[in-house]
Design a protein around this nucleic acid. Structure first.
Lengths: 209, 209
DNA sequence: ACATATCCGTACATACTATTACGGTTGTCG
DNA sequence: CGACAACCGTAATAGTATGTACGGATATGT
């Protein structure tokens, strides 16, 4: 099989795995079910991915690449922080609450007592990628006196708390729907206002916090 | 078996279930493993709890009762909101990040594609119990002009986001340890300061937000 | 065209789980 | 004390999952 064709085949298998995962959850997703959904053989799956955790690791990594491509469009600290955040925030929130991200977080939760690698992979490709991005953005804002005395690191942590809050865990346990665009905009705006309060001396009237 | 003895026996079985859950996760926790750990018979477990989801529902409900007893000590809106929050906040955060709560959230995440009842039970006994408590507290603060223009409902949502943030989901996927008391105090204080900014005209110097 | 690698579909071996059944033991009640 | 309920420990049943094996079909490279 040529490399291109193999990559495409591999992508099809991963898509099939997502479909089974959505229907049956992590425990209910067997390699055989994925193989049948993808019209592949069990042996090929074990040959290519090694094991069920191996397949899921590949899914997490593939999802991380997709997310990184999306976030690449949002440059860091070299522009107007308000504008940057008002574009980056909604994109981030959509990513972390997407069906795919939720399904992978559920898999990681289930895996946390087995190998623990899914959680670490998600964190390495997710939050640990996003925090430095936010810190660069907030470094620019700090230079303009826009962080209200917080460090870029503190501001990044605060922003994530405000943006995501407990929504993701509520999604993961199945009690919250995906946020609609109004909710996404509202949360992102609330977070931006609190993290980037008007600079001292600004004439803008805004809510405190 | 007398009622007292049966309650005690039931508690022992639930404790055994938590022990197995911590070691093996939800999927890896079989009724037989719990029965053996509790020195009970499989038949008794099925007789008393009906099924594996039934046993887990009982665990969630028992945990909710424990949490409600703890929170009962924290009265709502009839006192000084700063003091009330500075006591309630850390207690809340300890509860939602405790090993037991995390294990139950993992179970709910796994169950979300099956019955979905664990998540609903957790939400009904957790957040949906806490939000009205916070709203009562913030109603008092609003009357004193302490919410910076937000409604009690908005303030409660904001407080929860700031207090918990994404810490719980990071606990659930296995990438964050339980917060120590310093971290708990820090998060609670940050949340309090943002949600209860100094009243207009106050002389206190505080960070904006 | 031919040789070889590999993928597919199916089968197999092993282990585990959910749930019920059963005989013996223990606890409760009249 | 005796009758009965129910709990324990073990077994049975049916189903599922993981991972490997295998023959035939297909793809690739020379």
């Amino acid at each position: 099989m040529k490399d291109d064709a193999k990559s495409e085949r591999r992508r099809q298998i991963i898509e099939a795995a997502y479909a089974v995962l959505a229907e049956k959850g992590y425990a209910g997703t067997s390699m055989l079910a994925v193989a049948k959904r993808a019209r592949a053989s069990n042996e090929t799956l074990y040959s290519w991915f090694g094991s069920k955790p191996g397949l899921f690791r590949a899914m997490v990594e593939e999802n991380a690449r997709t997310a990184a491509e999306i976030l690449q469009e949002y440059p860091g600290g070299d522009g107007d922080p308000d504008t940057a955040l008002s574009r980056l925030g909604p994109a981030l929130l959509r990513l972390v609450t997407s069906e795919r991200a939720i399904a992978l977080n559920r898999a990681a939760a289930a895996d946390s007592t087995d190998t623990g690698t899914l959680g670490r992979t998600i964190a390495a490709s997710g939050r640990e990628h996003i925090v430095p991005l936010l810190e660069r953005l907030f470094a620019g804002a700090a230079a303009a006196g826009r962080l209200g005395g917080r460090t870029p690191s503190e501001a990044a942590e605060l922003y994530i708390s405000l943006l995501i809050g407990d929504l993701q865990i509520r999604r993961v346990i199945g009690v919250a729907p995906p946020p609609d665009e109004t909710e996404i905009a509202r949360r992102a705006e609330r977070a931006r206002q609190i993290v980037l309060p008007p600079a001292a001396g600004s004439e803008v009237t805004a809510r405190p916090g």
